[in-house]
């Protein structure tokens, strides 16, 4: 790894001023499981790494009647072990559990996974389904931005030098809900998704509503809005509808071929996992 300086600020203000001072030459670090590997491979070469782990404001997972706040330093393990996440955001729990392995989950953070912004990032499809917003502070103050506006492309996000994501916020689904994240990899653990599908079903004011989001099949995670529309209000979608929905989902994605999977397989799996994810959500809602 190339040499760099490490800063370990104890407050947000301090972190922001360091990041602002060094501009593009500095990068913030949460869990570091992506960043340190990228630095090792010299994909990024910051001169200053700003470790956020000592900033109290960034810790923890907090649940209130409005929703869930996941601090920038909350690890995947913390999130998936949170009772509130299990009860109200099961798709996120699945996503955290599918990420890498226990040891990595003990370091890797949910916010870090978002900020890495790689197309296969496991937690993002679930956050897209839960309409998560990204809370940012920076030299010009605080701002809040929906996750789908925050993620701009592979490893690209709407952030400027000096800014820090403090947390993501997930509003509580308005109504009884269920969710899941289905991940297909080359093997069952410690792999990048070939296809990741998050599905959330909510029995809200306007009846049953579905949300579907996909990872690893487009430059950014994508919602399949047409597919969601086709399902609107239907509590027990039949096979014909599931076929139609999975076809619509395939239209929403644009996978590439790489060493992990080809286009045809990825598209087929978008279809297959869509059906399975919807089934799972429908079943989970019946159970409760």
């Amino acid at each position: 790894m190339l040499a760099f300086e490490l800063e370990r600020p104890r407050s947000l203000q301090e972190a922001i001023s360091i990041l602002e001072k060094f501009g593009n030459r500095a990068m913030p670090k949460a869990g570091g499981t992506d960043l340190l590997m990228w630095m090792k491979d010299r994909l990024v070469t910051p001169e200053v790494v700003v470790d956020l782990s000592l900033i109290p404001d960034l810790a923890g997972v907090n649940f209130s009647k409005d929703g869930l706040r996941i601090g920038a330093m909350a690890t995947c393990t913390e999130v998936l072990e949170s009772a509130a996440v299990e009860d109200h955001f099961p798709a996120l729990r699945d996503a955290c559990l599918s990420h890498s392995d226990w040891l990595i989950r003990n370091r890797a953070t949910v916010v870090g996974n978002v900020c890495s912004a790689v197309p296969s990032g496991d937690v993002m499809p679930a956050l897209y389904c839960y309409d998560a917003t990204i809370r940012i502070v920076g030299p010009r103050g605080e701002r809040s931005i929906p996750i789908n506006k925050f993620i701009l492309g592979p490893r690209k996000k709407d952030m400027i030098a000096g800014e820090i994501v403090t947390h993501v916020f997930l509003p509580l689904p308005e109504g009884k809900s269920s969710g899941c994240y289905l991940k297909l990899g080359r093997r069952n653990a410690l792999d990048l998704a070939q296809v990741g599908v998050a599905c959330v079903a909510i029995d809200g004011k306007n009846g049953r509503e579905y949300r579907l989001a996909y990872g690893a099949v487009a430059p950014t995670p994508v919602r399949a809005l047409e597919a969601e529309k086709a399902l609107q209000g239907i509590k027990a979608p039949d096979d014909a509808l599931l076929e139609k929905v999975s076809a619509l989902a395939k239209e929403a994605v644009k996978p590439i071929a790489d060493v992990r999977a080809g286009v045809e397989y990825r598209l087929a799996m978008v279809g297959e996992l869509t059906k399975r994810a919807i089934d799972t959500c429908v079943e989970r809602l019946k159970e409760e």
């Binding site: 490490l6 370990r8 869990g31 570091g32 499981t33 340190l36 590997m37 790494v49 470790d51 782990s53 393990t77 890498s100 392995d101 226990w102 040891l103 990595i104 003990n106 370091r107 410690l190």
Partner: peptide, 24 residues
């Protein structure tokens, strides 16, 4: 961060020590 041969317990929690900076 792939193989796990560098596992240590950090405050009792297993982590891969290649993903941790010593200063941390």
């Amino acid at each position: 961060g792939e193989c796990g041969t560098c596992t240590v317990l950090l405050d009792g929690v297993p982590v891969k020590s290649c993903t941790v900076l010593a200063l941390e």
